[in-house]
């Protein structure tokens, strides 16, 4: 069953642009990216759109569908009424290059600022060991496909361009948390997370979690635990005292601040 979809697409570049109508023939079972491709093939050959896998795994096709950050290839047309208008715009937090394509280099700059995994020397047999439960803990965070939808929706930078410098964003809080929970890592990144990465700017309103196509519980499992770890380091006098008189367990030993 095919029908004509009332599709609207934002077209333009950094100097300006507008939403334009592109009524297009679609059929049941298709996704927004299919409709965009058909527009590109039949009506607007120069429409710019970034995509790769069409399977929700490469994180390239991030955009906003009716104002909600989505992967276009995972956004089913059957989720909308047939007579509903669907408006597709580029991500609104990053500079636009053309049409639906944005410049996401902000995220790569932030990635560079994050000190990478620093394992200790190997065991005598040349191996490193980790118990299964400890391996499992970080698996959720490794599902990230770097679509940057969480970075895009986060109001800290979405609504305040001036915060970009001081705020790494949820995708990187995920990484901070993963490393801080890693039994083999030798860096202590808690001061850095709170300071340079701007963890304190997050007000845990959970939009990153709401949009994550991988269903990662960014706020509950990464940001809040990381905030609690920062409290241990910076704000809790009892923890400080416990460390001083040596009654706290030595779980954090062997780590040096970065």
């Amino acid at each position: 069953m095919s029908y004509t979809l009332k599709l609207r697409i934002w077209r333009g570049d950094k100097d300006g642009g507008a939403v334009e109508d592109f009524p297009v023939e679609v059929s049941e079972g298709e996704v927004v990216l299919d409709a965009i491709h058909r527009v590109q093939a039949t009506q607007a050959g120069d429409l710019a759109v970034r995509w790769n896998c069409k399977a929700g795994k490469c994180g390239s096709c991030s955009a906003e569908v009716n104002g909600r950050p989505r992967l276009m290839c995972m956004c089913r047309l059957s989720d909308f009424e047939e007579d509903e208008t669907i408006t597709v715009t580029p991500m609104r937090t990053f500079p636009v290059i053309r049409d639906l394509v944005t410049d996401v280099s902000f995220n790569y700059e932030k990635a560079k600022e994050l000190p990478s995994f620093a394992p200790p020397p190997r065991d005598a047999d040349g191996k490193r060991r980790m118990a299964q439960v400890d391996v499992e803990r970080g698996q959720e965070f490794r599902k990230c496909i770097e679509c940057f939808l969480c970075q895009n929706v986060c109001h800290v930078v979405r609504d305040h361009e001036d915060n970009k410098e001081a705020f790494a964003g949820p995708r990187f809080f995920l990484r901070y948390a993963e490393l801080d929970m890693h039994p083999l890592d030798t860096h202590d990144r808690r001061e850095l997370a709170q300071g340079a990465a701007g963890l304190g700017m997050c007000n845990i309103t959970k939009c990153c979690t709401e949009v994550c196509p991988e269903g990662i519980h960014i706020t509950d499992n990464a940001i809040i635990p990381m905030k609690e770890r920062v409290v241990d380091k910076k704000f809790d006098p009892l923890v400080w005292l416990g460390n001083k008189i040596g009654i706290r367990n030595k779980d954090n030993d062997g780590r040096t601040e970065v």
Binding site: W10, G12, K14, G16, G17, A18, V19, E64, N66, G67, R68, T87, T89, P90, R92, T93, F94, P95, V96, T102
Partner: peptide, 12 residues
């Protein structure tokens, strides 16, 4: 630099 869209949200 961002895509120029006036509306505060396009959510419907």
């Amino acid at each position: 630099g961002r895509a120029h869209i006036e509306a505060r949200t396009l959510r419907e």
